[in-house]
Amino acid sequence: MSNYLRRVLAIGLLSAVGVGSASAAGDSKIALVPGGPHPYFAAWEQAGKDAAKDFGLAAADYKVPQKWELSQQNQLLESLLTQGYNGFLIFPGDPVGSVSTVDELVSNGAPVVGGAGCFKDPSSASFCLGTDTGNSAYIGTKELLKTLTGTKKRIAHFTGFLVDPNTQLRIDAVKKAAEEEGATVVQVIADIDAPEPAEEKINAYLAAHANDVDGIITSAWVPAVVASNAVRKIGDKRIKMVAIDHDEVVLKAIKDGFVNGTMLQNPYGQGYIGTFVLDKLRSGCTVKTDAPFKKNALTDKFIDSGTAYVAADKVDTYVDAMRDTTKKLFETFQATYLTCK
């Protein structure tokens, strides 16, 4: 997403809630910490900067562990607390193993919100703000199956890391949607949300079994990119595909007709709203006990940051879809989920 579009998004959000709501604590120093390096989280960096500027925070910095290792993330979080960061938006390195660190951060006065992934209950995290990954995969699969006209409806599912708490939810959702439509999931390839394994496994699978597959659903960033390139290489557009996220490769493949559509997530909204909420929590707001949280397999305090299906007709205006989703959530967030004096 270009800087211009991000600014437009941020200005739109601010105008939606009014400048008066930015009653920020000037000493709020928020850290946005993913589980490791991954393109999905790149939008968090700009979201943090925009939120810091819009709400007058001391800082809202994007800090990435060197690798996808729980110990590295824990060590980084402890270091950030020492450096004076006092609010954390975290994608858990492990939904269970990160809970102890979260408890320590909170006990030291730094509120924590789960971003894009949830901590397993019980934890001291205020709530989890992420994509309803199961719902996203379910909708994406339904959209894919609408495009399949034959009777067989054989689909392959390419997805992310098994240690990612969202992966199993996605696998289950795709299976459920397929069963409802009388389709068959002929192959699930997981643990490939990195370029090397994704290239190797997806290309090898399609080289051997392209004729046995009518559709492809992807539910992680890198597999979506690799599969988009693969169907472009195959070239006959027989295999239908629904991707995920908004990588340029995916968007171009949609425009060119090789991919039917993509399920957008809302990482920018997670980063922006997450930072806003953390500042509010530091300013004395509390999370409503009776807030209309959703439930998922990990937590009873889940908030859907939004998802939207974008096909070729809307691919040029996908930012509008993300902006609308974020704006809608932001407008009512404080009133719905927080109690502020």
Binding site: E69, L70, S71, D94, G97, S100
Partner: peptide
């Protein structure tokens, strides 16, 4: 000791294959 630190026994505590 890591179990004590994390409060749980988790398969990913030493990374893939324990290579961390």
């Amino acid at each position: 000791m890591l179990v004590a630190r994390n409060g749980a026994a988790i398969p990913s505590m030493a990374g893939q294959l324990g290579q961390d």
